[in-house]
Nucleic acid binder design. Structure first.
Lengths: 140, 140
DNA sequence: CTACGATCTAGAGCGAGGTCTAGATCAAGT
DNA sequence: ACTTGATCTAGACCTCGCTCTAGATCGTAG
């Protein structure tokens, strides 16, 4: 069980890709873009070695991205963390603003869902009754 | 109250833009891409005249897009409707598949939100206690 | 008639967020 | 030593979904 454990052993980029769901390309891209808190360590041969906290950070990044945070905001957040203690209020503001956007997005999606569900119902009814009328259809 | 009513009067592209939230550019683009059910009528001078059902369709489009349906799927849906009665089962499948994707997306967002809310809580606690420790922070 | 804003077409351009390529190097197995 | 697969860098390229431009025309108010 040495390959799947959550140990202190540094991981290769491929292993981190597996664990985070990001592609190795994306991992290098994120690093170039300054989205990581610290520089990733390297082996003598130049290969990246990710620590557990690198992976933790990436997992947070994945959630923030998945919820629609732009890379620019993620970068800003990374910069704040990189800069160290003293800016927690700003980090909080950034995260909380994002949380609000996520809430709004969820609400918007729920509204869309109800419109779509209604339309699905219209078609389902129509098919159940085997009729060609009663549907809104400009070509009918 | 002639300018804001929901009448049978055809509307100019600018009026439709106002009512749907799409830009006039986007409206022309959608038309070019075949996302509309029928061809938009024109005045003798060549200007577009949208009917109420054009607007209804566009409002559906807006909801589908807002909920993440790709233009390609929207185009497919438009083609089905344009083709007329007889393919309602496929329309239903398309819409229902989308509804499921929306549900999945909402769930994913809710998970993200809880991760983010937890992180917000961590920072809020930290600030409330005025401490510099207890935070996960690789640079500390 | 003259202005002026809205609209027209065709097509170029853009921003986000990666993805992919080429060619070299590293590391491990045999 | 040789082969194989993972990784390296720099930078080109891609998809999506519009957005914008240029230059012409329409249509309405004065």
């Amino acid at each position: 069980m040495a390959t799947t454990e959550t140990s202190a052993e540094p991981l290769s980029i491929g292993e981190v890709a597996e664990r985070t769901g990001l592609s190795v390309h994306a991992l290098r891209f994120y690093e170039r873009e300054g989205l990581l808190v610290g520089p990733v360590q390297r082996t003598s041969g130049g290969r990246r070695r990710y620590t557990a906290s690198d992976v933790d950070w990436l997992l947070i990044c994945v959630k923030l991205r998945e919820s629609g945070m732009p890379l620019a905001d993620l970068k800003r957040f990374a910069e704040l963390v990189r800069h160290g203690p003293g800016n927690e209020a700003e980090r909080l503001r950034l995260l909380d603003a994002h949380r609000q956007r996520v809430d709004a997005r969820i609400q918007a999606l729920e509204e869309c869902r109800s419109v779509i569900a209604w339309k699905v119902g219209v078609y389902a009814d129509h098919l159940a009754r085997g009729e060609a009328d009663g549907l809104w259809d400009p070509t009918a």
